[in-house]
């Protein structure tokens, strides 16, 4: 087998193994917590009958491992069970919301990725001079802000200045693409601000790293212009680290989305998760948590795979 295929197969197998382990943590980890799950959900005032009922409903009388495998089998066949609070089918509730979350994250990614690479290139080109210092200063500030703080500053100032922005992002089925885009404008701006900083700083570092190599010096001595050197010589060699940076930050976006959805009342997966944590609806929380974890693991795996494919040294191992 070609060594690179072997590496890829290994990485994918590792990803799947990790996902399995994560599902066990999400399901069995909650079991391992001290105290009675049924009691925690119903609170201290619960009557013994209500507790017994809930235990029956959750299947708590069976051993944890049996329930884990039943749950896992259900997840693999697309059956996520029913919500405790309203008895709705979880898979159906997730379907529409997952689409909304991916739409929001997708818009943010489509804007932030090219912008981060462009700013990273500019900062690397003028390293140590004012454009670099300005960009670095601003991004250092936005890194220190939690998503919801950034969101409220954006809401307060943008809705006052430009009335076309809406502080609440409402989307519903049957809405046109442009109407949807208009609705998510503010949350997308917030997400871009939050992710851009990390992505741009790591892009800058990756390019500066390549800029120190001998072939870049040769290009400089040939008299090429700085932008040509970066574009023709440094960037192609920095693509692998930059792509993996981008992927890692998209994984970060998955978490940022949870808070931003709550801020804007955006009807999607993150909001659904937080709602049901408040209602202590364990089956929903476990199912949605697993989905978020799976997306996160998948993006991390993709980052590694692109890294393997883009690195010529890994393609020809000794």
């Amino acid at each position: 087998m070609h060594p690179i295929v072997k590496l890829l197969v290994q990485r994918i197998a590792l990803g799947l193994l990790l996902l399995l382990a994560v599902s066990a943590v999400i399901f069995l980890g909650v079991e391992a917590l001290p105290g009675d799950t049924a009691q925690a959900i119903l609170g201290q005032q619960a009557t013994p009958e209500a507790l017994a009922n809930l235990r029956e409903k959750l299947g708590l009388n069976e051993p944890a491992l049996t329930r884990y495998f039943t749950w896992l089998g259900g997840v693999l066949t697309g059956d996520l069970g029913t919500a405790l609070t309203n008895g709705a089918d979880i898979a159906t509730s997730i379907g529409q919301r997952l689409g909304n979350t991916l739409f929001l994250a997708g818009c943010a990614a489509a804007i932030s990725v090219p912008l981060a690479i462009l700013l990273g290139l500019v900062a690397a080109r003028y390293a140590g001079r004012w454009p670099d210092k300005l960009i670095s200063g601003i991004t250092l500030t936005t890194i220190s802000l939690p998503e919801f703080v950034a969101a409220y500053f954006v809401i307060y100032f943008l809705t006052q200045l430009i009335p076309i922005f809406q502080p609440v992002a409402m989307v519903f089925p049957g809405m046109g693409f442009w109407a949807k885009l208009h609705a998510v404008a503010l949350p997308v701006i917030v997400l871009v601000l939050v992710v851009l900083a990390h992505m741009m700083r790591m892009t800058r570092a990756a390019i500066l790293n390549v800029m120190q190599s001998a072939y870049v010096e040769t290009a400089e001595l040939k008299g090429l212009s700085p932008m040509t050197i970066i574009w023709r010589h440094a960037f192609p060699n920095a693509v692998a680290p930059v792509v993996s940076v981008v992927m890692l930050n998209l994984a970060y976006l998955v978490v940022g989305v949870v808070v931003v959805e709550v801020v804007f009342g955006y009807n999607a997966l993150g909001q659904y998760l937080v709602d049901h944590v408040t209602k202590r609806d364990l089956p929903v929380v476990q199912a949605v948590g697993l989905i978020f974890a799976a997306v996160y693991i998948f993006l991390n795996m993709l980052a590694d795979i692109i890294g393997i494919l883009a690195n010529p040294r890994l393609r020809h191992p000794k």
């Binding site: 909650v30 917590l33 978490v255 998760l273």
Partner: peptide, 19 residues
């Protein structure tokens, strides 16, 4: 490695739904 494979916020939310 396993704990870091899940975003902290998601783990915290799962834990706080029962604690």
């Amino acid at each position: 490695d396993l704990m870091m494979a899940i975003p902290s916020l998601i783990v915290a939310l799962v834990l706080l739904s029962v604690l």
